[in-house]
Nucleic acid binder design. Structure first.
Lengths: 116, 116
DNA sequence: TAACCAGGTTTCCTTTTGGTAACTCGATAA
DNA sequence: TTATCGAGTTACCAAAAGGAAACCTGGTTA
């Protein structure tokens, strides 16, 4: 007879929806790094490029508008000349920081395990 | 004069390396969901497919071998007939669970914000 | 002896992604 | 009047990733 699919303690909805939803926010290339860079305060476009060396202007720009649109960060144009633009985490974005810290924690152990 | 790139409190190495490293583990399609499904105990291949309906056999299979190779989960063949295969989190994999819980937390608020 | 089971793998195709490099804009400095 | 700056955008391209569906294996059951 076919094996039974055992009940799992964790019902699929609603948790994994949230998981999927939030993973979508931090999954794009460099998205987590952008948030990480902003956790210590506001940064300008070119500062972020310097923080995250391999990122291209195109991808950074894409990522910033996605994150802004999702309410994770805010974009503030300073009326200087030339205008400079500062990005900073919103309250919501700030809530991602502990999650990323937990991820960094695990990063350490993964590193120890397969890289010395 | 050109704007200065301000020092950020967070040095780029070594933290974002860890972040990038660990994000790579949980970034593949459905990787986080697989870990989430396993957090309550071992599951078989077809159980995982049932837990995560839109996942294809190919992607699940790919994801499982990546996660095994990275030491996040273990694969145990039961000598039954036909043999059944159980996957479960390793200790290392278990350490990802709090990180995912933090992410789910934020998922809730993101949902409230842009979806009601 | 034909069909079914678990647990995959293979093939093929489409979509998504990210990278490079060149270009834009309005304002200011040389 | 030409170059420079910050902050992007655009066009183009290559690679990677994911989905669908068919196939495989060895043992079992109808």
């Amino acid at each position: 007879m076919p094996l039974k699919v055992r009940k799992n303690q964790s019902p699929d909805p609603p948790q994994p929806c949230m998981l999927t939803h939030c993973m979508a926010v931090i999954s794009g290339a460099w998205a987590a790094n952008v948030i990480w860079s902003l956790r210590a305060g506001p940064r300008r476009f070119n500062e972020l490029r310097a923080d995250i060396p391999p990122i291209s202007a195109k991808v950074l720009s894409t990522r910033l508008s996605e994150l802004e649109q999702r309410g994770v960060l805010s974009r503030n144009v300073q009326p200087t000349s030339p205008p400079s633009v500062e990005y900073m985490l919103t309250d919501l974005g700030g809530e991602l920081v502990p999650a990323l810290e937990a991820i960094v924690e695990v990063g350490h152990r993964l590193k120890m395990r397969d890289g010395g």
